[in-house]
Computed example of a mutant assay.
Amino acid sequence: MPGARRSLALRHPHGGLREGGSFDRVSTDFQTARAALGARLRELRSEAGFNGKGVAEVLGWQYSKVSRLETGK
């Protein structure tokens, strides 16, 4: 329809509008996934017999990068 305006409101994946157009659920899902990835990386590192500094050295990274990945930051 000419001249019709489209709503810029954010829509929930299941069709509903999010209250205030917030990204709260998406942000929470992302944070949960990041924390789960960090826990899995830490588990794999431990099983391989490495400490954080050892992984950083092998990969050529700073230890702080490994730490941030494992803590989900």
Results as ranks from 00 to 15, higher is better:
26 V>S: 13
57 E>Y: 01
26 V>R: 15
39 A>L: 07
33 A>Q: 11
29 D>S: 03
68 R>A: 14
5 R>N: 02
9 A>M: 12
62 Q>C: 00
31 Q>V: 05
29 D>E: 13
23 F>K: 14
50 F>W: 08
59 L>P: 02
8 L>V: 14
16 G>H: 01
51 N>L: 03
1 M>D: 11
30 F>Y: 15
62 Q>I: 00
4 A>W: 04
47 E>L: 06
59 L>K: 02
27 S>Q: 08
54 G>F: 00
56 A>K: 06
67 S>L: 07
43 E>H: 08
16 G>T: 02
28 T>V: 07
37 L>Q: 04
57 E>H: 05
11 R>Q: 12
49 G>V: 02
30 F>D: 10
41 L>D: 06
1 M>K: 04
41 L>Y: 12
13 P>Y: 04
56 A>Y: 06
16 G>N: 03
9 A>F: 02
35 A>N: 08
22 S>T: 08
32 T>D: 04
20 G>M: 03
17 L>M: 11
29 D>K: 00
2 P>S: 10
72 G>P: 09
4 A>K: 04
4 A>I: 05
2 P>A: 06
14 H>G: 06
50 F>M: 05
31 Q>R: 11
14 H>D: 14
47 E>M: 04
64 S>H: 03
57 E>C: 02
16 G>L: 01
42 R>Y: 00
41 L>G: 10
53 K>Y: 08
14 H>T: 05
67 S>H: 14
51 N>F: 02
5 R>S: 03
52 G>R: 15
71 T>N: 13
71 T>R: 11
32 T>L: 03
39 A>P: 02
26 V>D: 14
8 L>F: 11
12 H>N: 12
60 G>T: 09
12 H>Q: 09
40 R>P: 01
47 E>W: 01
70 E>L: 10
31 Q>P: 01
47 E>G: 08
41 L>F: 14
73 K>D: 10
